[in-house]
Simulated assay, not measured.
Amino acid sequence: MECGEGQEPLKVNGLYRVNEKALNALDADAYATLRSGPMALAHAQLFSMSQLSQLTEGAKFHTRHGSADAALENLDKLFGEDDDLAFDFDS
């Protein structure tokens, strides 16, 4: 993954990306063949590349602040563990 100035490259395993140069080099017949489904997915992946920085920041946040289990424990401390709230939708 590309990174900003002064940042180390981040290696991400298990993610694939569309080769934009190859996509742009497709001839009209090949593009038309792929237009009905795969092409929408390819373009969506290209548009989503700008979100990788948010994914990276989220991963860093979770590394610094712990897992979701820790967050649930903090909510229990905030709201208490003796929650007797009940909903009756049959009335």
Results as ranks from 00 to 15, higher is better:
1 M>E: 08
1 M>R: 10
2 E>G: 14
4 G>N: 02
4 G>D: 06
5 E>M: 12
5 E>T: 12
6 G>F: 01
6 G>H: 06
7 Q>S: 07
8 E>N: 11
8 E>R: 12
10 L>V: 15
11 K>T: 11
12 V>F: 06
13 N>G: 15
15 L>E: 14
15 L>Y: 11
18 V>M: 00
20 E>S: 13
20 E>C: 05
21 K>Q: 05
21 K>V: 01
24 N>A: 10
26 L>N: 07
26 L>E: 00
27 D>P: 00
29 D>E: 14
30 A>G: 00
32 A>Q: 00
32 A>S: 05
34 L>Y: 00
40 A>Q: 07
42 A>L: 13
43 H>F: 13
45 Q>P: 06
45 Q>H: 14
45 Q>A: 15
46 L>C: 01
48 S>E: 12
51 Q>S: 11
51 Q>H: 14
51 Q>M: 12
54 Q>H: 10
55 L>S: 02
56 T>E: 03
58 G>Y: 11
60 K>V: 10
61 F>W: 08
62 H>M: 15
62 H>V: 15
64 R>T: 11
64 R>A: 11
65 H>G: 03
66 G>D: 03
66 G>K: 00
67 S>A: 07
68 A>P: 01
71 A>H: 07
73 E>I: 13
76 D>L: 07
77 K>D: 10
80 G>N: 00
81 E>V: 04
84 D>V: 06
85 L>M: 08
87 F>G: 03
89 F>A: 09
89 F>W: 01
90 D>K: 03
91 S>Y: 10
